[in-house]
């Protein structure tokens, strides 16, 4: 593997003194999809939310270790949050449109980043909606409330909204957990088609989803990294018996 885009070393995360994640090492290669799997409460989301420091700023997590994004350790302090979050975008577990129109949602980030010209914003809206394969469905109702879209459309809108930031890394926190199989399929298709353009980190409860879309998979259990490697290998020839048990559905 060439130099990873994100490299996590000895990551520890505590909430009010209670450890949630211990000594996690994880390498996330550039322009590929890395899946993080594990049972609920194993610390997957905590790891993900620490890559853009939301856990530190919102959940008041105490973190130690290193997370290098392009060789810059973001846990070292003094990191520009705004810049980091534009480079490391995030999509949440349930669709989270902000109140306002489809258009308002998409231009929220770019406007804050200083894009003011109407033509630029329009172009960005179209390109990010096309990337999320939502353009044809919503092009005639960009001015309507985002809440009027279906759940699956809302989630693709949220993905488009993240892509509109022009991120390098996209963090997906169980993006399909509340969606029907067809919406899930559309999102997986979109990830496949955009795989080479971003560095994806997909946290999922659905091991089959990890097997379907990711190139690398990491298995986390009780806040510890059990095993990571190429997805095919992890699913067919796991090194740790617990990995095998989990991916075959024997627990969790």
């Amino acid at each position: 593997m060439s130099a990873p885009k994100v490299s996590i070393r000895q990551l520890g995360i505590c909430y009010a003194g209670a450890p949630a994640v211990r000594d996690v090492d994880l390498d996330i290669p550039k322009n590929a999809i890395t899946a993080v799997i594990g049972p609920a409460g194993s610390g997957k989301t905590s790891i993900l939310r620490t890559i853009n420091l939301l856990s530190v700023d919102v959940d008041r997590a105490e973190v130690k270790g290193q997370i290098r994004v392009d060789d810059r350790d973001i846990l070292a302090g003094g990191v520009d949050r705004v810049d980091l979050r534009r480079r490391v975008g995030m999509v949440f577990a349930t669709p989270q449109p902000l109140p306002g129109s489809v258009y308002d949602n998409l231009v929220y980030g770019p406007r804050l980043a200083g894009t003011r010209r109407r033509a630029d914003l329009d172009a960005l809206v179209e390109s990010s909606l096309r990337a999320a394969e939502l353009w044809d469905e919503v092009k005639d109702r960009l001015r309507r409330s985002a809440f009027l879209l279906s759940g699956g459309q809302q989630q693709r809108l949220c993905i488009a909204r993240t892509l509109a930031l022009g991120p390098e890394v996209v963090l997906l926190d169980e993006p399909c957990s509340g969606l029907d199989p067809i919406s899930t399929f559309k999102i997986e298709e979109m990830m496949r088609s955009l795989r080479d353009r971003f560095t994806w980190v997909l946290v999922t409860n659905n091991t089959k989803q990890a097997a379907r879309v990711s190139q690398r998979t990491a298995f986390v259990l009780l806040g510890q990294m059990i095993e990571q490697g190429p997805t095919g290998q992890l699913f067919t020839a796991p090194k740790d018996p617990r990995t095998g048990d989990y991916v075959e559905g024997r627990f969790g």
């Binding site: 853009n52 939301l54 700023d57 919102v58 949050r81 705004v82 810049d83 979050r85 534009r86 975008g89 995030m90 949440f92 349930t94 989270q96 902000l98 929220y108 980030g109 804050l112 980043a113 949220c158 909204r161 993240t162 930031l165």
Partner: peptide, 11 residues
């Protein structure tokens, strides 16, 4: 979640 979303979009 609104705060999460807004922060994650670079606000």
């Amino acid at each position: 979640r609104y705060l999460d979303v807004s922060l994650s979009l670079g606000a």
